[in-house]
Amino acid sequence: MIQALFFYLFAAITIASAVMVISSRNPVHSVLFLILAFVNAAGLFMLAGAEFLALLLIVVYVGAVAVLFLFVVMMLDVDFVELRQGFMQYLPIGMLVGLIFLAELLMVAGAWVFAPEATATATAPIPDPAQVSNTLALGQLLYTRYVYFFQVAGFVLLVAMIGAITLTLRHRAYVRRQNVSVQVARTRATSIEVKHVEPGRGL
């Protein structure tokens, strides 16, 4: 009973804050509502018994991704009232796209069938969930059984990262770069030159 109570609480807050994300006037408030939605989704995961996924959602999405969102939104100087001027004009197209997505989702959900062998394992999972914590089970699946797929996914991310870096990296010749090892290796002999200046002569 208490589980159901918390489920409806978390679900209601998730949906309400998701609505607030798109309807609040201030973009910073939008991101903060997005964070609230993430945290409540983590609560839903927790209720479903997936505590590892729940905390990972918080660490990765709330702790890192949403911080970057917030960063960008706070730095932007956009007049959002002005942006909303054409809102009604785009509404039909937006609703059309939304309807298409909804129809597709319904089609997928309507034609949903479980693989026959999956239903068998779902009723009696191997290994037994009472024996193995879901961290261990996820680890075994991800890093042992599907290790090659995991590696390939990692490489895809690496390629994306290298792409992003090469797109934004600029070498400007006139910028003097800092070399820490050179700075640390400076000694008195290499950096100071003592000159004896005779009075009245100068250098």
Binding site: I35, E51, L55, I58, V59, V62, G63, V67, S133, N134
Partner: peptide
């Protein structure tokens, strides 16, 4: 005494940045 206690502390400490940002 939860199964993922270390992760819980990590999650909490990653959330604490919001106090400063807000």
């Amino acid at each position: 005494d939860i199964n993922v206690g270390v992760l819980f502390i990590l999650a909490i400490s990653s959330l604490s940045v919001y106090g400063a940002i807000m």
